[in-house]
Each structure stands twice: as C-alpha cells, then as structure tokens.
Amino acid sequence: MNIKKTRAAAVGAVALALTLSGCASGSVDGSGSTAAASGSAGLTKVTYGLFPSSTVAALQVAIDKGYFKKQGIDLKLVVGAGSSAAQLPALATGELDFMLASPVTALTATTQGLDVRIVDGVTQNDPKTVEDSTAVVVGASSSIKSARDLEGKKVSVNALGSIGEIGIREAVAKDGGDPKKVTFVQLSFPEVAAQIEAGQIDAGMAGSPFMQQVVAKGGRVVSDFIHDTGLGANELVTISSGKLVDSDAAMVKRFTAAMKDALPFLTENNDLVRAAMPASLGTDPAAAAKVKLSIYNADVSKETIQLFADLLVKYGVVSTKPDVDKVIWKP
C-alpha cells in the first residue's frame, strides 16, 4: 500500500509536470486555418502559434491575400488555448517556428535562460481608442475614478506577472499612487463582469468585447494603462527561438519581410479582418462588425522594449535585467 502510493505520487507528479511544461501536448490546438495555396510545392512550411484574438483573423487575411506565399512561405496558424507562456515549450523544441506574444513573455523567458528573440512587431495600441486592446474597468457603483484610486484595491489581470501587472502598477505610479499597494488576482476576461458585479474584485483588466460588457452595465474605464504607460508601441510581437534565427536567418528575413508588407495592408483594411473573424474565431458576425482593432505595425521600437524590461525589474517580476539588445533580432 505504501509503495503503491509513493509510486502513484511519483508518476502523478511527473505527469502533471509534463503537462504543465507542455511537453506532452505542446499546447497545440489545431483549430487554426490552413494555408490558402493548394499546391505548396517549393514553399517553406512555417508554423505560427498564437492565442485566440482578432490577430488570428488578421493574419489569416494576410495569408489569404498571398503575402506569405510571395516570400515562398506556406504559413500555418496554430491557435493555442493557454497563455503564451504555455506555448513556449513548443517554440523551444521547434514545433513552432514563431509565436505571437507580449514582449513580457520574451523578456522573462530570456532572464530565465531561454533563448528567445523578438523578430518583428505585430500590434500597437491605438492611442485614439480605448476599446482596441485591454484596459481597467470598474462597475457602476465604484468610487474609483483613475489609476491612483486603485491603490489598496483588488484588481484582476488575465495573467499574473505579465503586461497587466507591470502596466497597471506603472499607471498607478504615474497617476501619483503607490504601485506596491495594489493586489492582483488572476481572472480571465470573460469572468470580469460577473466578479465586478458580485463585488469580489474592485476593478478588472478586460479586453474586447468583455470590456464593453462592463461599460454597457453602467461601468467605466478608469485606466487605459497600456497607452498611458507608453507600452502601446509594441503591444504584441512575433518571437522566435534563438536556435531558429541563428540557423535559418534567411527564412526569418523572408518572414519579416512578408509581415512588413502585410501589416500596413491590414491596418488599411480593417473591414476585411472583421469579416474574417467569424470563420477564424467563431465570433458572431454582428459582434465582429463592431470590434475595434489595433494598429498593425511590424516595427520594433527599442525604447518600448527597454521600457518593458525596466518595468519588469522595477516591479520585481524578474530578478535579473533582460539584455534588450540581445533579445531584439537584427536581420
């Protein structure tokens, strides 16, 4: 009986570890769409991992319009269910060539010893609108007016230790509050509205359309923190493993060239992206039509990435300072 229990515990621990490391599943969910071009002879097969968001639709449009085919790339989108941190093992093993991620993911990974590089930008926070990315919302009855009032309150973010945590703390600091006195709890966007109503959290970080849900019930946005902190210039970027960029720099160059061409097109043609959302994400067409999209831009701003790094150190998310120069890939 003793032995069985110990064995079971050991096996169970290993299984749990492997699952969490993503080794077993690779967090790969094959719900992404396939390359549009049928005869892909002569094209390099490239995989791009990302989590469900409007970017899936955007890149799908770019694929369909042939931007990648032009560079000799047969791009396959691999939509994962978990956070980007959960897809990292797939990147490390080469199962994924590229990944959509926040600079935070890349920077924390490098401080832990994983060699990842930022190869190009993808989305930017649109300074003109709040609803294109994520912001902090509160309920109708809340007394919180601005970031400073978040001091001493319980705020939800979708993932601890990522952009929500450092961005909101910095927004509080910039607004004159004590950034250390905010309590964070991890809650996915869909849960935010209900928990605000139940009074379980004082404020929540939410993206589209969940942010709108709260506002529709009389709530309001109190902090467009990504914009306010200047982190918006590179909200999401493409990352790749150091191994890949060193061994196949040519392919990476072609890929980034395709992105440089495609992204401005997508910014000019938001309607195409919205139209593709039902097919790519299963969004309701009426809701899709109303979604505000981010700006698509392939540029990587060193200042912004450095700001990410500084904030990560400032708020104790990482213990060593990331080497921004090393992380940003130069062709």
Binding site: A85, L160, L187
Partner: peptide
C-alpha cells in the same frame, strides 16, 4: 483560477513567468 495565494497559484505564477525549475 482567480486566486491570490496557494500552491496552485504559485505554480501557475511560475509558469507564467517561465520560471521552470520553480514550477
């Protein structure tokens, strides 16, 4: 999910921060 402390919370936290040995 939606926790502020605990062993499970710590594990997820470590995973998010790519702190693999800690996880």
């Amino acid at each position: 999910f939606a926790s502020t402390d605990g062993i499970g919370y710590s594990i997820i936290n470590f995973q998010n921060r790519v702190a693999i040995p800690e996880m």
